[in-house]
């Protein structure tokens, strides 16, 4: 039990970091109704770019911005596959993800990982800061919960503003009803490009933060990211859909969904004392359960979410 509570701040911090990735995924999966599998690759791209930038001596903020831009580039590639070449979205994402494996290795100088030791670099977040704040050697504002929480709120605020603009509203319309959008003069293909770029930018930003938090970037760090992202979206929806109607709150629900996911995983690991090699299996099961909940509910109460296939 104590091991669980000791691990809790770490689990919540990690959940918040992955929550940023999930918010990015929300844009494609929920708003544009695109299944974008680029994220497993672009998450690592973000981590790799951030690590290499900082190793090269750049400021942490510069590294984060460049990581964000690199993610946008990955999203752009997927969007070109999809909108210009007519490849189904899901395949476009898989192709980019596959290609990114090599690109990510190349970014890290053909190595499978790149250390980013907190002792040598001025990081924004680190696992180490958890203990430092506890011991009092660092201010509370450097606690990962505080820093990542603030970053999350800033991102939600910007997205809330953006999706309320003329352009942002037209992106929402593209996902809600592409036929209607085109009839109202909306360039749905361009909007998919923009959506995929913003989404993957956020995914890469999340990867960049995780690389800092864990002290290294790794070629496998994005594996299963899509599952964690979906889990966060679904958990957030299952838990908060009745409570949160406002768009900004819905985005926050996604972030909290990621936190819940990590807390549940942590609970399973520390309370049941399971070999951590079973982590992926447990993750898959947890996500399957949460994915099933809305459907099972619908069957019981005859309420189904209206879906458009355009």
């Amino acid at each position: 039990m104590t091991s669980f509570f000791n691990a809790l701040p770490g689990a919540v911090s990690q959940g918040l970091i992955w929550g940023i990735m999930a918010i990015g995924l929300y844009i494609t999966y929920q708003m544009l109704e695109l299944s974008d599998l680029t994220v497993d690759g672009s998450f690592c791209t973000g981590g790799a770019v951030c690590a290499m930038m900082m190793v090269a001596g750049h400021n942490v903020w510069v590294a984060l911005i460049v990581a964000f831009l690199a993610g946008m580039l990955a999203g752009w590639v997927t969007s070109v596959f999809h909108t210009k070449l007519g490849i189904p979205a899901i395949l476009s994402g898989i192709l980019t993800q596959l290609g990114l494996w090599s690109v990510n290795l190349a970014i890290m100088g053909m190595k499978a990982n790149q250390a980013l030791n907190v002792k040598n670099y001025d990081l924004l977040v680190s696992m180490r800061f958890l203990k430092d704040v506890e011991k009092g050697t660092r201010g509370f504002w450097q606690h990962p919960l505080f820093t990542v929480g603030l970053v999350t709120i800033a991102i939600v605020a910007v997205l809330y503003w953006f999706f309320g603009t003329e352009l942002g509203a037209s992106i929402r319309a593209t996902g809600a009803n592409a036929n209607m959008a085109r009839a109202q003069g909306i360039n749905t293909n361009l909007n998919k490009v923009i959506g995929l770029m913003i989404s993957n930018g956020l995914v890469a930003l999340s990867g960049a933060l995780l690389a800092q938090y864990q002290g290294f970037a790794d070629i496998n760090m994005g594996r299963g990211a899509i599952v964690i992202g979906l889990a966060a979206i679904i958990i957030g929806d299952v838990v908060f859909s009745k409570l949160f109607r406002n768009f900004a709150l819905k985005l926050l629900a996604v972030s909290i969904g990621a936190v819940i996911y990590y807390v549940v995983i942590q609970a399973v690991i520390s309370l049941l004392d399971i070999d951590s090699n079973y982590l992926k299996l447990i993750s898959a099961l947890i996500v399957a359960i949460f994915l099933a909940v809305p459907n099972l509910r619908g069957k019981t109460f005859g309420k189904r979410k209206e879906k458009h296939h355009a």
């Binding site: 953006f162 603009t165 319309a173 003069g185």
Partner: peptide
Amino acid sequence: LAARRGKLRTLMS
């Protein structure tokens, strides 16, 4: 959305 048909969609509200 309909009121902006045929117009450039900007970052205005």
